[in-house]
């Protein structure tokens, strides 16, 4: 067994130790420690400016840390960068593309940069097919729609079969069909043993897909646990009320989590608050057209940890 193979078997997929990153006066990352084991489906969540993209760029070798160490599959991203980058596939957040080439050419070039030759073409074709790009394989990148460009970007990150895949907002601005297709493919890759690290501002996606999540705020990790544990730490539920044309009575405003088009979501800390809400509505002579009691979700956990108003969560 070669050393590289041994590393692959034994080392964590990603090990981040006391990483600091400063941009002038801005302390963007404040001593991040994080270990992600091989085969995990991991979520990295946080609002704009939390430092997620900075952390990913350090993993990818696009930024140098001010202090600390990062390794991928046991390979230091600075001292052993070639082995580290061979182990990593990154889907960048921005829709960048090379305007001179078609999809298949671009993917073959990308595989070639990683030392892959024509023996890799079958895998490239498999990626193209799994991401629904077969009809566009000979289309110039410039002529692709935004969604298709996103698929091509994802394909580019996968052409060298990296054991660790980082998806930085992969579903930003893409349609439902692509999301479903993408997640089916990514879940298959994860089942095949690939480690997946996902940043997304669709928290329901992270809740459904990620076994473990880290929540970041202002350059620090404020929560790191399994998704199930994080959800169980928040005992509250949400009460969603459809009031039609009527407005929410003032007595219920302190509980208001969100409200739009006559549908209001109230955050409950105890179940007996349901009765309180209903009596307030009766007193105000408001008819409830529909009502649902919903479990707290990852967004609630996030809000309770990070603070801020509802709906403010947005990834950068």
């Amino acid at each position: 067994m070669t050393q590289m193979m041994a590393d692959k078997v034994l080392a964590p997929a990603i090990k981040i130790e006391r990483i600091h990153k400063r941009f002038g006066d801005l302390h963007a990352l404040k001593g991040i420690d994080l270990t992600i084991q091989q085969g995990e489906f991991f979520g990295l969540l946080g609002p704009n400016g939390a430092g997620k993209s900075t952390l990913i760029n350090i993993l990818a070798g696009l930024l140098k840390p001010t202090h600390g160490k990062v390794s991928i599959m046991g390979h230091d991203v600075m001292d052993d960068y070639q082995a580290a980058r061979l182990s990593l596939g990154v889907v960048p957040q921005e829709l960048v593309f090379d305007p001179f080439f078609n999809v298949r050419e671009m993917l073959r070039f990308q595989a070639g940069y990683f030392g892959r030759g024509r023996e890799n073409d079958a895998w490239v074709d498999e990626v193209i097919e799994n991401l629904g790009l077969t009809d566009k394989a000979h289309t110039n990148m410039r002529k692709l729609s935004g969604g298709m460009k996103r698929r091509a970007l994802i394909a580019q990150a996968l052409v060298h079969k990296p054991p660790v895949i980082v998806l930085d907002e992969p579903t930003a601005g893409v349609d439902v069909e692509l999301r479903q297709m993408l997640w089916a493919f990514i879940k298959k890759l994860n089942a095949d043993g690939h480690t997946i690290i996902l940043t997304t501002h669709y928290l329901e996606e992270a809740e459904t897909l990620c076994e473990r999540v880290a929540m970041m705020k202002q350059g620090e990790i404020v929560a790191l646990d399994t998704t199930a544990n994080l959800l169980s730490k928040l005992p509250g539920k949400n009460l969603r009320l459809n009031l039609g044309e009527a407005s929410l009575p003032p007595a219920l405003l302190p509980m208001l989590k969100s409200g739009e088009n006559g549908v209001y979501t109230l955050a409950l800390t105890e179940l007996n608050q349901v009765e309180f809400a209903l009596s307030a509505l009766r007193e105000a002579k408001i008819n409830v057209e529909d009502m649902q009691l919903i479990e707290a979700d990852l967004e609630d956990v996030f809000m309770s940890l990070v603070g801020g108003k509802n709906g403010q969560y947005e990834s950068n």
Binding site: L62, A83, Q110
Partner: peptide, 16 residues
């Protein structure tokens, strides 16, 4: 490639 951002495709690779 710097202005369009596509330089990232080369920077992400093990090329020295």
């Amino acid at each position: 490639s710097k202005i369009m951002g596509s330089i990232v495709f080369v920077l992400l690779t093990p090329l020295s």
